[in-house]
Each structure stands twice: as C-alpha cells, then as structure tokens.
Amino acid sequence: MKLLTPGTVPEATAMLRDSGGRAKPIAGATDVFVHWPVRVPADDEIFIDLSGLAELRPHRWTDDELILGALTTYWDVITDPRAAEEFAILVQAARTVGSIQIQTRGTWAGNIANASPAADGVPALMARDAVVELTSAEGVEQVPLDAFYLGYKRFVMKPDQLITAIRLPRRPHHFESFIKVGTRRAQAITKVGVAIAHSDAGWRIVANSMAPTVRRCRALEEALDDQAPLRSPNDFTPLLTRDLAPIDDIRSTAAYRLGVLARVLYHELAPVCGSVGPSGAAS
C-alpha cells in the first residue's frame, strides 16, 4: 500500500493521472476504515491523502450559490447558522450520519465518491440540485449530481478526476424534509431514506437505499408538480416503483423498504400538500 500526500490540487490531479487511474483519493477516510483490518488494501493499492489541501476545506457563500469544498465536513455545515437557515435539509441529513465523530471527519464529497446507495448526504444534496465540480490535469467539468451515477458504485467521474467542489443554488424553498429510517437511532446504516424539497423549480424526491444508486423519484415528482391526487400510501407505490428497485438484504426487505417509503412520504406530504389526501386515513 502506498500513501501519497499532495500539497496542491494540481499536484493531486497529476498524481491521479500518473497512477493510471489506480489511485484512490481519501479525505476523512471514514469509508476506508469501516473494513479495516479485516479487508486490508492490496499491496499495490495507492491512496492520495487530500487532507493537506487546505484550499479545499472551507465552504463559501456567493450571491447565488453555496459552494462546499471537497474537504468540507458534515460538521462544518451543521455548525454554520446560515446553512441551518437556508439549507436546513443538509443539516438534517448531516446529523443522521454515523456519530458526531464521523460527522467531524466525513466529507460531502467523499459521500458522493464512495457511491453507496445508502449514502445519507447525497439525497439532500441531490434534492437541492447540487452540481459536482470535477477537476483533472486536463481541466474542470461541472456535472449535475442527479446525472452523476450510472449504476451500483459506477459514475461518470473518470479515474483521473477529483471532486473539487459541490455547488448548490441558493433558492427559497416552500418545504423540505429529510427522513432516515435506520436500524437504530444513531450509528446506523439507512434502510429507507428520502429527501424532499419543494421550490419554484418544482418537487424533488430523492431516495437512498432504494435502488443501486441514490435516485430521484421522477414519476412521483411529476405527479406532485401536476398536483395529482395521492390519497393513501398505496397511491404512492406505483409511482415509486417506476424509478426505484429496492432489494432484500441483510438489513431489510424490499417489501418493507417500498411500503415504508410510501407511508413516510404520505405522512410527510399530507400536511403540506393539498393534493394529498386527508391525514385521517393514516394506518
């Protein structure tokens, strides 16, 4: 195993290029250590430690964007009062990640690059129309987060590209909410998760642990934009299955995941959305 420690972004991207795409950038390393030492990295594995790239750490506010650096942690966002005001859904999601210790080391960019379908940061970012800035020795590219993933642990980012920023448009929201159904109330991997956001740009419903990638529920978003009547959890199910494909695994079942997502959405949307049926038809 080799650990490279660049001091600047150009150095880091040069290392990525020179490794022929084999090197893996790490920031908080929280995902690397999950399986340590049972699944140790191979002898020839290369890690690029980004923690020395100070310019990637701070997040910035511009007139129309919140820009997270590649090394911005969950904790950085949790502790920014402006984020709590304008991007409450990010703060909500960040607080559900692992433990406080993990929240202070784990980064938003790492959450995107690790590409877990159960990622808790990604749905909130996607619900707020995040754009990922990818930098390589060749140049810079901007990719909307909802076009980033191609399949399980696969994405459009090339092996020589590094996430250098995450850009989030500042936009007033009528409603937003993040729900995590985990196996317990802390230190839990998500069984069913959803980020809900509504602005003049329309509805965003983004689910995690419901498909091979974090995914937008576009059929449901359209139904909500069209104010289609949704009068019980059962009305949500056929819309959800158009975009999602939950599975049985060691943490839960497909039936539970789909049933619970429909119920959670119904109860979240019932009080705020006129087209959703009366809340009395609960269970």
Binding site: V34, R184, R185, A186, Q187, I250, R251
Partner: peptide
C-alpha cells in the same frame, strides 16, 4: 456491529 444492531444510547 454495523449490521448486528445493539442499542445505542439514543435507543
């Protein structure tokens, strides 16, 4: 211990 779920203090 990520998948065998003992209660946390919050539970």
């Amino acid at each position: 211990l990520t998948n065998y779920i003992i209660p946390s203090a919050c539970d």
